[in-house]
């Protein structure tokens, strides 16, 4: 699963790290002082590292709960995100992480108690409320069997019923969620793209069927689930891929009980895009014509807003407009 496990000296003797290491007796271990010695150094290549990523077990210092970017969330409540992990086990070609880091190794911050303290303090500053996203710099659930992340953080939000926790994921690792009591203020938001986009650009991601199966199990167990249709990459095939995707999704889930549905077009900071183009000069997606506005790059399309509106219309045949929001 990992080519190497790097461990910061400071966390080497913690029981959480020892338990994690016990799971991988065969993986070579290397002790480092700080994760920054290994992760995101110059002269590293994300694309090459993705062939055999390493796990880095580290302690997170500094700010642990950050204000979410504009348009990330589904309501006007104060929104924050926290990242117990940097990088994702999946390999989606459109992902901005490829341009954000020069390293594809996974950094797992193991000082969960410090995150807990920071989240609790932020909730209290927000009079017990706010929306807290996990899954901005990683996939929230994909490493769950190793990290026990959900197992640890869901009970915290059980103590703050007015604060909302959203796990953004493409993973089917839901066992720990199913094993614990449901809390109504936790949302599991699964991301989907069309079959065509998935087979072209998403590598190592569980199939749409498997993801839907996981969501269905969660929904039946009483968990609130959400759908994130992004990034939408509009092609000459028009709406057809989305018609079939939506038909498949809403045949499996109880649409009335879905917490929220969102869609968003392919967007990326210009600098990240530049770096990704250098990594993947042979990738068709990054050779397409683009436009830039406000520091972001998008694929050039004359009828983008019409197509997006048509996709939304399709969605509204399954859900109510109140359940929907458009990502910025």
């Amino acid at each position: 699963m990992f080519s190497t496990i790097y461990i910061e000296e400071e966390v080497l003797e913690t029981s959480r790290v020892k338990n994690m290491l016990d799971r991988f007796p065969q993986v070579p271990r290397v002790v480092c002082e700080r994760y920054g010695e290994v992760f995101n150094r110059k002269s590293q290549n994300f694309r090459l590292q993705k062939k055999a990523p390493a796990l880095i077990l580290a302690k997170k210092y500094g700010s642990k709960v950050l204000v979410a970017p504009d348009g990330y969330g589904y309501n006007d409540s104060r929104s924050y995100y926290f990242s117990h992990m940097l990088n994702c086990v999946y390999d989606c070609r459109y992902c901005f992480l490829q341009g954000m880091y020069s390293s594809a190794n996974y950094v797992l911050f193991v000082n969960y108690e410090d995150f807990e303290e920071a989240i609790a303090s932020k909730i209290e500053k927000n009079s017990g409320g706010g929306v807290y996203y996990s899954g901005y710099d990683c996939d929230s659930l994909a490493l769950e069997p190793v990290s026990d992340f959900c197992k640890h953080f869901v009970p915290l939000f059980g103590e703050y019923p007015n604060a909302e926790l959203e796990f953004r994921t493409k993973s089917t690792q839901i066992r720990h969620l199913l094993e614990q009591p449901v809390i109504p203020n936790c949302v599991i938001a699964m991301s989907f793209t069309s079959h065509e986009a998935g087979s072209r650009w998403e590598h190592k991601v569980p199939s749409i069927d498997k993801r839907l199966e996981a969501l269905q199990k969660l929904q039946l167990a009483g968990w609130r689930v959400a759908l994130r249709f992004e990034p939408l990459i509009l092609d000459s095939q028009g709406l057809t891929p989305y018609e079939s995707l939506f038909a498949q999704v809403f045949a499996k889930l109880d649409a009335r009980k879905i917490h929220s549905v969102s869609s968003g077009l392919f967007r990326m900071p210009i600098d990240f895009h530049k770096r990704i183009v250098k990594l993947y000069p042979d990738e068709e997606l990054f050779a397409r014509p683009t436009t830039t506005a406000d520091g972001m790059i998008a694929l050039k399309s004359e009828d983008e807003s019409l197509q997006l509106a048509a996709i939304e219309k399709l969605l509204f045949s399954h859900i109510s407009p109140q359940q929907y929001y458009r990502c910025a």
Partner: peptide
């Protein structure tokens, strides 16, 4: 898998992409 310069104490970490050889 970790190369340390004894004089400066600085370490470098060659990424381990090649399986099958101990490090």
């Amino acid at each position: 898998n970790k190369i340390t310069c004894q004089e400066s104490g600085v370490s470098a970490y060659p990424p381990q992409l090649i399986a099958g050889i101990d490090s």
